[in-house]
């Protein structure tokens, strides 16, 4: 039960933080300028919502399904990092907030998402079963 609550809350918090990173915490460039960071923001909003929803869904299911959800979230975490760094990117100049703050924050949140989800799936599949 402890694991269920803790991981669900962590996923929801991480999802919300990913959603807030490019919109509220370190907002990207204004919407009237169509730049990379704008598209990154839109993609990350979707990813943040997805991770938060998976966190809520995980609460209602068995250990095996929760392990599966965690593996999926780890994959989404990799995608979450790839969007601002490789797939879409942010503005080129490191004087811009999207480059110097939003992108590192998204990468840090992505790394945390991967660590939490991988640790949780290992715990559920190996430790708990043993």
């Amino acid at each position: 039960m402890k694991n269920k609550v803790a991981v669900s809350i962590l996923f929801v918090v991480l999802g919300i933080l990913i959603l807030l990173a490019p919109t509220v915490i370190f907002p990207v460039c204004p919407a009237d300028m169509k730049m990379h960071c704008q598209y990154t923001k839109q993609a990350e909003i979707g990813i943040g919502i997805l991770i938060a929803v998976l966190g809520i869904v995980a609460f209602f299911f068995s250990e095996e399904i929760r392990a599966g959800i965690s593996i999926a979230v780890a994959g989404i975490g990799i995608l979450e990092i790839a969007i601002p760094t490789k797939l879409i990117g942010v503005c080129g100049s490191n004087m811009m907030t999207c480059h110097s703050a939003t992108r590192p924050l998204l990468v840090v949140l992505g790394v945390l998402t991967i660590i939490v989800s991988v640790a949780n799936s290992v715990y559920l599949l190996k430790v708990k079963k043993a």
Partner: peptide, 13 residues
């Protein structure tokens, strides 16, 4: 590693 280093440039700016 997840706070000081990634945001060093932002803080410096």
């Amino acid at each position: 590693a997840i706070t000081v280093f990634p945001f060093g440039r932002y803080l410096a700016n």
